[in-house]
Nucleic acid binder design. Structure first.
Length: 247
DNA sequence: GCGACAG
DNA sequence: ATCTTGTCGC
């Protein structure tokens, strides 16, 4: 078992923080088992003997969290699975994993295929205690994971994010005094996965290591997994699947 | 007290 | 995350 079981609804706030510190201790923020960006490119765009890349996203159905996991390999969707769990803890920035984690883990375990990489919507190392949803899940299921968030939770961009950047640009996100990592540690990147020529600029996504991957490879994986849209294809498909499971 | 704040 | 139609543009 890579991480503690999910806490009860009546767990103390301090217990939750303690769990996250443990998750961060067990997390590996360096390349150790995660597929290369090239391999991920084959899984999403096509190729032989690619790894199994699974995208995960959530939707809500009343008080329940609905999670969808979409597995891709050799350029095709090979399996989809969903799981629904009652939410007990409310949404609190920094404690998201305790609200959505149970459903996410259940959806991943409902797959019959074994994931080589998890692409999870939400932060990984870009988190106050370096234990965002992607890190918590990666450690819990002992699988390489990358976090892809649509907004920045914490940390300091090395450069201003104002204005427009062309697709492919990666701006380091450094730890500040709110993050439990030495000041200046690169905990992730703002990745411009998509950009238009139109007057309306597209925002970047925030990619960070979840487990068994370094920040550099995580960012390149984020770009390699995109297919014409702002979000990595497996996550985009999981988004649709989760929404459909709600209807 | 003020501002920040994944989904 | 979610409540929600049309509309501007490639």
């Amino acid at each position: 078992m890579g991480a503690p079981a999910w806490p009860d609804a009546d767990a103390d706030h301090e217990d939750l923080l303690a769990i996250q510190h443990r998750v961060a201790e067990r997390a590996v923020f360096e390349d150790a088992g995660a597929p290369t960006p090239t391999a991920v490119e084959r899984a999403v765009h096509g190729g032989r003997n690619s790894p199994v890349v699974v995208g995960v996203d959530q939707a809500f159905d009343g008080d329940d969290a609905v999670s969808a996991a979409v597995a891709m390999a050799d350029g095709r969707v090979i399996e989809r699975a969903t799981a629904e769990r009652e939410t007990t803890i409310p949404y609190i920035p920094g404690l998201l994993s305790f609200r959505e984690g149970p459903a996410v883990e259940a959806a991943i375990e409902a797959l019959t295929v074994e994931p080589d990489l998890l692409l999870i919507d939400g932060s990984g190392r870009i988190h106050y205690r370096q234990a965002g949803l992607a890190t918590h899940i990666g450690v819990a299921v002992e699988t390489p994971a990358v976090g892809v968030a649509k907004a920045l939770l914490c940390g300091r961009p090395r450069e201003s994010l104002a204005g427009r950047r062309p697709a492919g640009v990666q701006i380091p996100i450094e730890a500040d005094d709110e993050v439990t990592a030495p000041e200046g540690t690169i905990v992730g990147h703002a990745v411009q996965t998509r950009q238009f020529d139109s007057p309306r600029a597209i925002n970047p996504v925030f990619v960070s290591p979840g487990h068994r991957v370094g920040h550099r490879r995580a960012a390149r994986i984020g770009l390699a997994a995109c297919d014409g849209y702002k979000l990595p294809e497996p996550i985009r498909l999981a988004d649709h699947a989760a929404g459909r499971a709600t209807e």
